[in-house]
Every structure is written in C-alpha cells, then in structure tokens.
C-alpha cells in the first residue's frame, strides 16, 4: 500500500484505464459515469483480470473499450444474453453489463426481463438519456409522450416505459437509481450494486448533450433539484425539500406529498425499507416519476437477497454429479440396448 491514500487512489483508477481514446461527445454524461466506475472498481476487491464488461450497441456500449479489464462489445440489445453465458461459464467473474435505454428497453427488452427473473449475479448499468444518440436523435422507449425528435416531428405518441417498474415486475433483486451529475451518489450506488449478490440493476439518468440536453434538468439544476429529489435511505422517512419540509405518506393505495409543519404532521410518513419483501411499496416508489406532484426518488429502491441463478445452476451440476458419479464416456456410449457382433 502506498503511504499517501490519494496517490494510491489515483494509480488504482489508472489501473482500470485502457489505452483507447475515449470518443464520446465533449460534455456527454458518459464521461462522469466512466470516471466513477474507474474509481469504484479498485475498491470492490476484485482483481481486474476477473472483471468483465459486456455491452450491446449504442453510445453507452462503447464503455468496455475504455476499461482495462476483459471486455465484450456485443450486438444490439443482447448483452444480457451474452453475460448469462459468461457468468455460467465462469461464475467467479465479476460481470458488468453496460446498456442504454434503446439497447435494453427496446431491441433487447426480452433479455433484460429474463436476466432479472433468473437473478443472475451480475450488475447492469442502464444509461438512460431518453433518446437514441448513436443513430443521431430518434425518440427512445423512455422518451415522454409528445417528445419531438427526428422520427417524431409532430410529437411522440408512445407511452414510455418506466424502467424501474419494469425490472421490479421482472423480479430484480437489487434496483437503484442515480444521476450522472451526482458523482458521489453514483459511486456509492455502484458500490452497493457490486456488493449485492444477485442481479443488480442501476438506472443512471444520463444527459445527452447533443440530442436531449436538459432532459433531467429538474433533478440536476442546483436551483430547483432539492425540491424535486427524494434521497432514499434505508430506515429513513421519505422526506425531501431543501429544508426537509416535505414528506411522503400513503393515502389509501396512493402516495401523497405532505407539507411538514409541526411534529404531528410527521405521523404516517412512510419509512424507506430496501428489504421490503412485498413488492407493492417499491412499485409505488417506482411510479413516483410519473406523478408531477411527487419528487423523483434516487438511491437503492430494493436490495433483497434471493438465490442467484449461477449459484443454483452450478449447485445442480454438483448434485447430479454427486448422485450419478462423474460422467464416464465409455459408459455413456454403451447406454441402452447393445449387442455384440463377433
């Protein structure tokens, strides 16, 4: 260990930097995500030869080229499928899937759902910029209704996907959201994702400076963001606002914002619980972004332990091998009815 922790940190970060030129547009939110990832990786306790970054197609998917570990830049939408094979071939690897809203919610939607359902022990980082960047500005499955883009000159008619609701519905065991501008929060969230045993899904609000600048302004603009952001912390009441003067309460089956003015007004405030086994609460949290009267939650929505796919997959192989004995080719060949010709 170096004596000076700052120097050590710097060299560790460099350790994960590849020799490739980074080719995102100047000012792209991806730079911040890459920087935080390079910072976090040395801290998760996995040597870089055991780290694999897998991506699909899109701006975000260039990511693996910029990390000096094993990397696999695959085809559009299919990174979760490839990652499944990688992890099952070698469960000791720390597998990171890098994807975008078009890659994972449109062309690759099916694979994302099945990854969550199986609970493969991998991390999936979704760069959500609500636009197709690499193909130069068409609306995406997370673009809001009415969004004017090159392919929707009169406004988009499509109801957008809510990524968080989607993966919760598919059974993701770890679900979190962070923002490219909030580097500390992002680093902490990545660390939590890495530490979680199971499929960890992180949505990153990522600004596309060229085709969708300011899409997340309400939660990134220092002047207004405090009123619009709800930081989730396990065990803490759902309280937000610059002066922590607002809270979230459950009224019937609906969430309501409440002004906090006096001790009694805190009665009935919801307390965040990452390990809530009942999906209803977490699902309500995920739907808050669709309510203009409610703040946008960021942080860890859910962190539930359940058996991982790679674990039970390898266990079954061991069990069968234990029961039947290690496979013997000669015996396999002569299975069933055989006869001898002299």
């Amino acid at each position: 260990m170096a004596d000076n922790p700052a120097v050590d940190q710097k060299s560790a970060k460099a350790n994960f930097a590849s020799d490739q030129d980074v080719r995102w547009c100047p000012g792209c939110g991806d730079y911040a995500i890459l920087a935080q990832m390079k910072k976090v990786l040395p801290e998760i306790g996995v040597p870089r030869e055991k780290v694999v970054f897998i991506s699909g197609i899109g701006c975000a998917s260039r990511f693996p080229y910029y990390i000096n570990s094993y990397g696999f830049h695959t085809i559009h939408g299919r990174a979760p499928a490839v990652a499944t094979g990688v992890k099952l071939a070698n469960p000791e690897l720390s597998v990171w899937i890098i994807t975008g809203d078009g890659d994972s919610l449109s062309i690759g939607g099916n694979h994302l759902l099945h990854l969550c359902r199986r609970n493969l022990n991998v991390n999936i980082i979704l760069f959500n910029n609500q636009i197709y960047g690499l193909t130069k500005g068409q609306y995406s499955p997370t673009s809001p209704v009415g969004k004017r883009t090159k392919t929707t000159p009169y406004g988009s008619l499509d109801t957008p996907f809510n990524p968080m609701s989607l993966v919760l519905g598919a059974g993701a065991s770890f679900v979190a959201r962070t923002i490219d501008r909030d580097t500390k929060h992002m680093a902490a969230t990545f660390k939590r994702a890495a530490a979680h045993k199971g499929c960890s899904f992180v949505e990153v609000y990522q600004n596309c400076i060229i085709f969708n600048d300011g899409a997340f302004q309400s939660v990134t603009d220092p002047k207004i963001k405090q009123e619009n952001l709800l930081y989730l912390e396990d065990g803490r009441e759902l309280v937000y606002g610059a002066d922590n003067d607002k809270g979230i309460r459950l009224e019937g089956l609906k969430l309501e914002a409440a002004a906090l003015n006096g001790p009694e007004s805190r009665n009935g405030l919801l307390k965040h619980q990452e390990t809530m086994p009942d999906e209803a609460y977490t699902y309500l949290l995920s739907k808050m972004t669709e309510r203009p009267d409610l703040p946008t939650p960021i942080g860890v929505f859910r962190a539930l332990e359940r058996p991982t796919y790679d674990e039970v997959f390898m266990q079954q192989i061991d069990d069968v091998t234990q029961k039947k004995g290690k496979g013997n080719l000669k015996e396999l060949f002569i299975t069933g009815n055989t006869w001898k010709v002299d």
């Binding site: 695959t74 499928a81 990652a83 499944t84 099952l88 690897l93």
Partner: peptide
C-alpha cells in the same frame, strides 16, 4: 437469439 448469445458468451469465458 439469447440461446446463441449465451453460447457465444460462454465461449468468450
């Protein structure tokens, strides 16, 4: 697609 994708991933690893 996932079937061959996983097979390719397994070959990579």
């Amino acid at each position: 697609i996932a079937a061959i994708g996983a097979a390719v991933g397994a070959s990579f690893a």
